[in-house]
């Protein structure tokens, strides 16, 4: 793969989860990081097992429990960052950052029963807040061109198109500056981060 492009400007600060809100259907929803809990893992299997195949994109989520489990085992690994949108004990949505060299690939899914209620925006902001808090610097994704709702969500968040040459659009976001941002300022005057 060739070098991916990212905006020069660093994105806003996103709120690290847990966060809670009421969606447009008056449901109480909470965004929480996935912390390797087996019950949460099983809840995600259930969410994807009932996921509408019409909402698949570029082969994910895969179909059938066996493939769903293989895929989740890979993206819920310790080196990935995951957040889940909970409505009671049901998973309404899930978003993930999977390592790819010095960057992370992003994907987000909202179950059909919970779409068009504003959950996606909270979910992606929660994921990016979780990533920022853990030192993630660059995030990229691909999205099918016709998926206007997703493209406008990503643009609103601050993603910029980095490759428009193929079937899918590739977009990038800079979450933290590239330089040695880990060094604390000597005088501590600038507590920006």
């Amino acid at each position: 793969m060739s070098d991916r492009g990212y905006p020069d400007a660093v994105a806003d600060e996103f709120p690290p989860p847990p966060t809670a809100f009421t969606d447009r259907e008056d449901r109480e929803v909470e965004i929480r990081p996935y912390e390797g809990n087996e019950a949460d893992h099983e809840t995600l299997v259930e969410m994807y097992d009932t996921f509408d195949p019409a909402d698949r994109a570029q082969g994910i989520p895969p179909g059938g429990e066996k493939r769903i489990r293989e895929w989740l085992d890979a993206i819920l690994a310790d080196d990935c960052y995951n957040v889940i949108a909970w409505c009671g004990d049901e998973a309404a949505g899930h978003a993930t950052l999977v390592p790819d060299g010095d960057a992370y690939e992003l994907a987000i899914f909202v179950h059909q029963e919970y779409q068009r209620a504003g959950i996606g925006t909270h979910l992606i902001r929660g994921l990016l807040g979780h990533g920022q808090a853990n030192g993630v610097r660059k995030v990229w994704l691909t999205v099918e061109r016709w998926n206007r709702a997703a493209v406008s969500l990503y643009k609103k968040i601050g993603f910029e198109t980095s490759d428009a040459e193929s079937f899918e659009l590739e977009m990038g976001l800079r979450l933290r500056a590239d330089e040695v941002a880990e060094e604390p300022a000597a005088d501590g005057a600038d507590g920006g981060e």
Partner: peptide, 12 residues
């Protein structure tokens, strides 16, 4: 090509 996420991208 399959991305780290498992997304399939068709080559040019």
């Amino acid at each position: 090509h399959t991305s780290p996420m498992g997304k399939i991208t068709i080559g040019s």
